[in-house]
């Protein structure tokens, strides 16, 4: 069973890998729209990547308005 910190770290690592950023370059409180400069298509790509990695479904309405990795990780963690 993962802890929330582990889930958060996996989210950060996956995002960094997906967007080809150096490991450790993302922080839990980063606003991923601003930090990554991503659009709606890229956001959905990241959602697919996260769902496939964690083996969960994360409905859009649960992440609507979420813009930081920490809150995103919390939403994911609640479905693990």
């Amino acid at each position: 069973m993962r802890t929330l910190d582990q889930t958060t770290q996996e989210v950060l690592d996956l995002a960094a890998e997906h967007f080809q950023l150096p490991e450790g370059s993302l922080e839990p409180r980063d606003d991923f729209f601003k930090k990554l400069g991503i659009d709606s298509l890229q956001t959905l790509e990241m959602l697919s990547r996260l769902e496939n990695h964690f083996g969960i479904e994360l409905p859009d309405y649960e992440v609507q308005g979420v813009s930081d990795f920490k809150t995103l990780a919390e939403r994911i963690h609640s479905r693990l």
Binding site: L47, E51, N52, E57, D60, Y61
Partner: peptide
């Protein structure tokens, strides 16, 4: 009714 997106696995 939810308008949500679903991934390919689902």
């Amino acid at each position: 009714f939810t308008g949500r997106t679903v991934n390919a696995t689902r």
